[in-house]
Amino acid sequence: MNLVVNGVGQALDIDPRTTLLDALREHLHLTGAKKGCDHGQCGACTVLLDGRRVNSCLVLAISQQDAEVTTVEGLAEGGQPHPVQRAFLEHDGYQCGYCTPGQICSAVGMLDELKQGWPSAVADDDLEAQIRERMSGNLCRCGAYANIVPAIVDAR
């Protein structure tokens, strides 16, 4: 099967049970997307699939023939880190770093949803509250949340 990952076409010969996450990590050696739970419960594996954020551990790779996947490794443009990546550095938006690629990809996807006016469970215009609600699928056991949200606000 074929995927376009970070702009590069990739041919894969994989077991049909392979998740998109394992296809990236075990077959393409793109280990930026992390495996925290393999069950769609932590967000560490978040990537952009055709521009939208998904938990890649919940997607079977073969169901995505020719799809465009962007991982944390593909966010930088022209050698410059993505504004969200820069903001995480600025705000110390991590400790161990294991949830970080998922937080960053999720933030990139989420900011786009926000721009497009997607609805959220938090109805008020408090931007931070909006971001917190929309980012709640990305767990951080190091408890860097109080740094991550201001980073995302800055990057917006």
Binding site: E73, A76, L89, D92, G97
Partner: peptide, 13 residues
């Protein structure tokens, strides 16, 4: 800032 910060945000760590 964390020395390994750039590696952590780029997925290289």
């Amino acid at each position: 800032g964390r020395i390994e910060g750039p590696a952590k945000v780029s997925g290289e760590a």
